[in-house]
Simulated scan of single mutants.
Amino acid sequence: MTWTNLWYLLPLSSRWMTWNLFLALIPLVLSVWLFRTAKQRSVLWWMGLFWFVAFLPNAPYVLTDLIHLVFDIQSTDSLLFNTLVIIPKYVLFIGIGFEAYVLSLINLGDYLKRQDLDPWVLQVELLLHGLSAIGVYLGRIERFNSWDLMTRPHHVVRSIADTFLDPQPLLFMILGFAVIAGLYWIIKQINLALLLRHQYMKTVKE
């Protein structure tokens, strides 16, 4: 395969990457509005919270797009192209997507702390990890979208009910929960460490 053909194939993966990344950034944008800028909890705020939870699984969903990486690597015979283009492209894509998940929950945690609900932060994080694992399964395996909660809620509920009666999907979700929770904890600590360093450097300069 020539380099010309390889560069021609790039836009094919870029289309779904752009769309999935757009979906992954929606909960981050909503978290900034809900937990940083909104002044009161109006009806609109509660509607935004619903959509925040509904779209949140789209952020960790990018982890499952690693299956496309394997296909893209196998589709080329150029080690240089895979090393310099394909792999960095996926690393950036997945990194931004999951970082959106981490920052979304950090914003939520800060909001709960400002509401004097510190003991609930961990429980809420674990709950959202679990819901996200379910959402990732529904999206990757059952091919549901976030908006199906509004357009086809009965299909979503039926699929979830069937899932909990089948050990194989349940195992998928348990593993998904473990991966999401583990990566979240690691990246959250990195983010908090960078934030503390930034605050320290800012204090020293002053």
Rank of each mutant, 00 (worst) to 15 (best):
L21C: 08
W7T: 09
L23E: 00
M173Q: 08
I86C: 04
M47L: 14
A161M: 10
E99I: 09
Q40D: 15
L79F: 12
L79N: 09
I174R: 08
V102N: 00
L105M: 14
F71W: 10
F172K: 04
Y111P: 01
S75V: 06
V156D: 02
W147Q: 11
L149I: 07
F177T: 04
V179T: 09
F35E: 00
D148Q: 02
Q168R: 12
E99Q: 14
S75M: 13
F98W: 09
M201D: 12
G130E: 07
L56H: 01
R143D: 02
R143E: 02
L30W: 01
G95Q: 13
R140W: 07
H68G: 06
R143G: 02
N20I: 08
N20C: 11
F172A: 04
T203Q: 12
L195P: 04
K188Y: 13
L84C: 07
P153N: 14
D148F: 00
I174V: 15
A181Q: 13
Y61W: 11
G182V: 09
G97H: 02
L126V: 13
E206S: 11
L195W: 14
F55N: 00
S14T: 15
D110S: 11
I96C: 10
N107G: 08
L9P: 00
S104I: 04
F172P: 00
L122F: 14
Q199E: 14
A59L: 09
D65E: 15
L49Q: 07
L127E: 10
S132K: 03
L6E: 11
P88H: 07
N20H: 13
V124Q: 06
A133T: 04
I141G: 01
S104H: 06
W33P: 02
L21G: 04
S159Q: 10
L66V: 13
L103N: 06
M17I: 11
I73M: 13
V53G: 02
V157Y: 05
D118N: 14
W185E: 14
D77L: 08
R143S: 04
L49M: 14
A38R: 05
D65I: 05
G176D: 03
Y111V: 06
I96L: 15
I141S: 04
R158F: 03
K202T: 11
V136S: 02
I73K: 05
L149C: 05
L92W: 10
L117I: 09
Y137H: 08
K39P: 03
L30D: 00
S42T: 15
S31N: 07
H155S: 07
A54Y: 00
K205R: 14
Q189G: 08
T151P: 01
L79S: 09
Q168L: 13
Y8C: 08
G130W: 04
N58I: 03
G139H: 01
F98L: 11
T2M: 06
M1C: 08
F35D: 00
L165F: 12
W185H: 15
K89R: 13
E125N: 15
N191Q: 14
D166W: 08
Q123R: 14
S78L: 08
L9N: 07
L105G: 01
I180W: 00
L9I: 07
V157A: 10
Y61P: 01
I67D: 10
A59P: 02
L28V: 05
F164S: 09
L175W: 12
T203V: 10
L30A: 10
L108A: 07
L28S: 03
N20A: 12
T83L: 13
